[in-house]
Design a protein around this nucleic acid. Structure first.
Lengths: 336, 336
DNA sequence: TTGTAAGCGTTATCAA
DNA sequence: TTGATAACGCTTACAA
C-alpha cells in the first residue's frame, strides 16, 4: 500500500524546498545543475508521477478532449473516435469518451461531467432524442470550444463537420430511380435532427427532379433504433401498395429493414431494392450485400479534432467542413 | 465568457464565509435555515456547479471507474462497456473509457492516465501485445482495485471475469468433429494471452478425446487482427493437405477467414466448416451464417463492474467469476 | 541558485 | 450558527 509519491516526499528526502523540486522536474532555467540531477534521479527512483488533478485545478483546465457520441457500439462512431484519437493523442492530449445512449438526459449529464473536468474542448454528435441545446449554450458562453460532427446542431455558432447529406441522399435516391424504382420509401430519422431533415430534403429533391409524385404514406420517421426501423418496415410492407425500394438514412436501419424483408421472404432487390447510409463494414458481408453512402468516419473524426485543436491553440473562429461522400452500389439495389 | 461560479462568488455576494456556503450546499446540520435558503437560492440562480477537480484533489480520488479495452469498435467490448456502464452509473459513478488499440504502449499510457486521475478502480481487458504487467502491479500495490475480464492476467491476484474458455473451445471443436470434420485447424490468438492458451487447450482436449492426431502445421497464432487471420488462412489453404474445418478463437478472425474462403471459391461448410468465438451480432447476417460461442458480453461487463464496486465499497477480496457460454450452431458448421 | 508564500476550489477542524 | 484556517499537489511571483 505505498501511496503515490509527491514532490513533497522528494523535497523532504533531499532537504530542499518543493519549489526546487518543481523547478528541477520542469526544466526551469534557474536551477543548479547538480540539484537538478539529484532531484531527477530520486524522482525516477521513486517512480514519481505528477498529480494530474492538482495540475488541472491549478490551470483550471485539463489536458483532455471530451467526446460525446450516441453509442460507441455504432461502427460509425467508434471509427470516428479512432480518427479523433489519432489527432488528439499526437497533439499531446488525452480524450474522455462518453456515450449518450441516444438519450437526452445522458447527453446533458455527459456534458456536465466533461465540463466539470474542465476538458479543453468538446466534440459532440447529438443523441436522437435531443431537441434543446441549453446544456451546450452555457458551455459555449464559458468559452469552451465545441465541435459538432455528423448529428450536428445548426442553431449554435460552432464548428461543424458534416457530409453533404442532402446531396448524398439525392444521389442515392436518384440511383434507385435509375434502377427503375418508382415507389421509393424513405426510412428517415427523428425530425428533430438536422441531418435527418437534410437527408429527407435530398430524397424530396430527387423525386421532384424526376417527376415522381410524393407520397406521404411511404415516409417514416424512426428514432434511429433497430426496433423502430423494423416496425416501420412492417407498416410499409403492409400497405395496399407497398414500396418497390427503401432508402434508409442509416445502415443500422437498413440492416433492420433487410432482416424484416428476408423474414417475409421478399426478394432484395427483385421486389424491394434497398440503400443505406454510412457504409458500415458489415454491409459487404451480408447477403445480399448492401448499397450505401460512404462517409469516411475516420476522416470526419480527424477533421473534427483538427478543427477543435486549431480553435484551442490559435483561437481560430468556428468553421464548417463538408466531407465528400460517395455512393457504393452493391447487390441490394442493382436491378439490371 | 462568464467564468464558472465558485463558492467564493456566492460567499462574497451574500457576505458570508465560504465555509458557510459549503455547509449550506452540503446539507450540513450546523447551519441556519435562513442562511441556507439564501445560499441555495443564489447558487441555483447563478447555476453553480461544484468543481470536481478540487473535490478529487481533496479526496485524492475521483468518482470515476477507469476502463481499458483493446478496441471499443470490437462489438464484444462495446457491449461489455455498456454492461459496465449500467452498473457503474446506477451506483453513482462515472466511467472513463480508454482503448489500447491492441498496443502495449498505449495500455501502459492508459493505465497511467487513469491512475493519475485517481480513478476509484480499473476494469481491464488486455491488449494482444501485452506480455508484462508492471504497469498494473504498481497500481495494485497502491491499493487500486482492479478487475480483469475476457483477456485476463492470471499472474496477478485480482478479480477476474472470464468464460470457461477451455470448455467452450472443447465444445466447439467437438461439434466440428461430430459433423464429420477430421482435419480441424486452429486459428489461435497470441500465445502471451491467457485466454488464447485456454482456448487452445480446449481444442487439444477435444482432439485427444476423439483420438484425432494433433498436427502442428494447422495451428496458427494470430495477433487478433483481421490481416493476420487472413494471412494465416491463406497459409492453411495452401498446405498440401488443407483443413476441412477451421476453429477461430474470435469472431473477427472467423469473419476474416470467411472472406478469404469465399474469395477462393471454397464452399462453407461443404469444403471447410467454420466456427468462431464471441457470437458477434454480425454473424447471423453474413452468408452463410456463422456458428460461434456466445459469451454474453453485456453480462460479463455487468459482473466485472459489480465485483469492482463490491471491492471498493465493502473491501471484499478479489474473486474469479466464470460466465456460462453456449455454442450457437449456424450454417457455417452444419454439414448434415 | 534556492526558499517562502499565495493560490487553484473545496471541505474539515477548530474557535468564536 | 458562523468564520478563519489548513490542507490536497503543484506552480509561480517574489524575496533572499
Amino acid at each position: 500500500m505505498n501511496e503515490p509519491v509527491t514532490i513533497k516526499h522528494i523535497a523532504r528526502q533531499l532537504n530542499v524546498s518543493v519549489s526546487t523540486v518543481s523547478r528541477a522536474l520542469k526544466d526551469h532555467p534557474r536551477i543548479g545543475p547538480e540539484t537538478k540531477a539529484r532531484v531527477l534521479a530520486l524522482a525516477r527512483e521513486l517512480g514519481y508521477q505528477p498529480n494530474v488533478l492538482s495540475l488541472n485545478l491549478l490551470n483550471n483546465r485539463s489536458n483532455s478532449i471530451g467526446i460525446i457520441v450516441p453509442k460507441i457500439s455504432y461502427n460509425f462512431y467508434s471509427q470516428a473516435i479512432s480518427g479523433i484519437e489519432e489527432v488528439v493523442i499526437a497533439a499531446g492530449y488525452n480524450n474522455m469518451i462518453c456515450q449518450s445512449n441516444e438519450r437526452y438526459e445522458r447527453e446533458v449529464a455527459n456534458a456536465a461531467y466533461l465540463a466539470s473536468h474542465r476538458v479543453t474542448g468538446l466534440i459532440v454528435s447529438l443523441a436522437g432524442s435531443t431537441q434543446s441545446y441549453e446544456h451546450f449554450t452555457g458551455l459555449l458562453n464559458q468559452g469552451l470550444p465545441l465541435v459538432f460532427f455528423d448529428r450536428v446542431c445548426d442553431e449554435l455558432a460552432t464548428s461543424r463537420v458534416i457530409v453533404d447529406n442532402q446531396r448524398a441522399a439525392y444521389t442515392a435516391v436518384t440511383h434507385l430511380i435509375e434502377e427503375g424504382c418508382r415507389r421509393i420509401a424513405l426510412l428517415a430519422g427523428p425530425p428533430s435532427l438536422y441531418i435527418s431533415n437534410q437527408r429527407k430534403q435530398g430524397y424530396l429533391d430527387a423525386l421532384r427532379m424526376h417527376a415522381i409524385p410524393l407520397c406521404e404514406e411511404i415516409i417514416g420517421h424512426s428514432d434511429f433504433t433497430e426496433a423502430g426501423a423494423a416496425r416501420l418496415t412492417q407498416q410499409l410492407l403492409d400497405l395496399a401498395e407497398p414500396p418497390d425500394a427503401i432508402f434508409a438514412v442509416s445502415d443500422r436501419l437498413a440492416i433492420s429493414t433487410m432482416t424484416v424483408l428476408k423474414s417475409r421472404g421478399i426478394r432484395i432487390p427483385g421486389e424491394v431494392a434497398l440503400v443505406g447510409f454510412g457504409n458500415d463494414s458489415i454491409l459487404s458481408l451480408v447477403s445480399p450485400t448492401l448499397s450505401s453512402v460512404d462517409q469516411d468516419p475516420f476522416e470526419i473524426g480527424k477533421v473534427s479534432a483538427e478543427l477543435l485543436l486549431r480553435q484551442v491553440t490559435t483561437g481560430a473562429a468556428p468553421e464548417v467542413r463538408v466531407i465528400a461522400t460517395r455512393l457504393i452500389v452493391r447487390e441490394s439495389s442493382r436491378k439490371r
